[in-house]
């Protein structure tokens, strides 16, 4: 009798410890905290950039209309300011980047046509100025970045074909020139992030195939170097399109996107080892066509869509903190 009750006790203890284990299993690295959003301002395929610790975002598509409104997100204060409307055509899937204190926004899709116009935004005067058209012609879903005094736009979809060409923009002379040497495949809805003085390019899709190649671009030499493929390891599931890319404290991140369905997974890239690690996925809805703001030390993933559900939320990633399901 005593033996039996002891057995039961031991079993209970075992069962309890098992349950404890499974509920404690969520101590993955990476935590997400919800930040300020407007209820009912869902939109996807917006363009954004960060200048002086302030996030800027605008244009996009809300499921009914293509948009021109443009907002500043005050990262320190966690509030929003409506800025000057983008003066070009309403559009989604444009390309944008920050460069030397100015924002640049161009190309995209207005619901009928792909676009080629290109504009700069001056946050000091809250004003837009039209610049020289993108040299690569009409384009949407391209990749853009600004580094070392030069802007770059490449890849994307021109209305007929996916592309792999790259062009660089000189803001001093307001001129574009072709940049040769990208050895990657043509694609649309790829992504990029910048770590230090190097730019990383990958993901995207073309003809239903998710791209596995991954590239490092050195703007000082204008050389693209092939890095390990995004399916190099068996447990990698990084390949996707319509994702966001950003940098926090010297590591790169690719979050959300689409690959057979919407995703919330978060992959962290270490440029020192050329390796990827799966950390806590974006809390909230899995999504595609979101936006990321990164100051280099803080990063936010916001907006986007999940099927026909357009999203209006905003999450900050703390990649080195443990996952906490109660915040």
């Amino acid at each position: 009798m005593i033996k039996n009750s002891t057995k039961v006790l031991v079993l209970c203890a075992l069962a309890l410890s098992l349950f404890n284990c499974s509920s404690d299993d969520d101590n993955d690295r990476g935590n997400w905290i919800e930040r300020s959003v407007f209820d009912g301002v869902p939109r996807s395929n917006v363009v954004g950039f960060v200048i002086d610790e302030l996030g800027y975002m605008g244009t996009g598509y809300d499921g009914d209309d293509y948009l021109v409104d443009f907002w500043q997100y005050n990262i320190a204060g966690d509030y929003w300011v409506q800025k000057a409307d983008f003066p070009g055509t309403e559009r989604s899937s444009a390309t944008g980047f920050a460069l030397d204190g100015l924002g640049y926004l161009g190309t995209g899709y207005d619901g009928v046509d792909e676009l080629t116009d290109f504009w700069s935004y001056n946050p000091g005067s809250n004003s837009w100025t039209q610049k020289a058209d993108f040299l690569g012609g009409v384009r949407q879903a391209a990749i853009g970045f600004g580094i070392s005094g030069t802007g770059y736009i490449g890849t994307g979809y021109d209305g007929d074909n996916d592309r792999k060409d790259f062009y660089k923009y000189d803001p001093t002379s307001d001129t574009w020139s072709e940049l040769v040497g990208f050895g990657g495949e043509k694609r649309r809805f790829g992504t990029t992030f910048t770590i230090g003085d190097k730019v990383y390019i990958g993901t995207g899709v073309s003809n239903g195939l998710y791209k596995t190649d991954f590239w490092e671009f050195d703007p000082s030499t204008e050389v693209f170097t092939s890095k390990l493929d995004l399916d190099e390891e068996d447990d990698y599931s990084i390949t996707r399109s319509n994702a966001v890319g950003f940098t926090v404290d010297g590591l790169g991140y690719i979050v959300s996107g689409y690959n057979g369905g919407v995703l919330n997974s978060t992959w962290e890239y270490d440029p020192g080892t050329d390796e990827w690690e799966d950390i806590t996925g974006l809390e909230g809805y899995s999504r595609q066509d979101a936006l990321a703001f990164s100051t280099g030390t803080r990063a936010f993933v916001l907006l986007g869509r999940s099927g026909s559900l357009y999203l209006d939320d905003n999450y900050e990633l703390f990649p080195q903190e443990d996952y906490d399901d109660e915040d």
Binding site: F38, D78, Q82, A84
Partner: peptide, 16 residues
Amino acid sequence: NKVLIKQDNIPAIQNE
């Protein structure tokens, strides 16, 4: 009681 939108300037139009 948490600030959501702050407009020192008129929204939508150019300049401050």
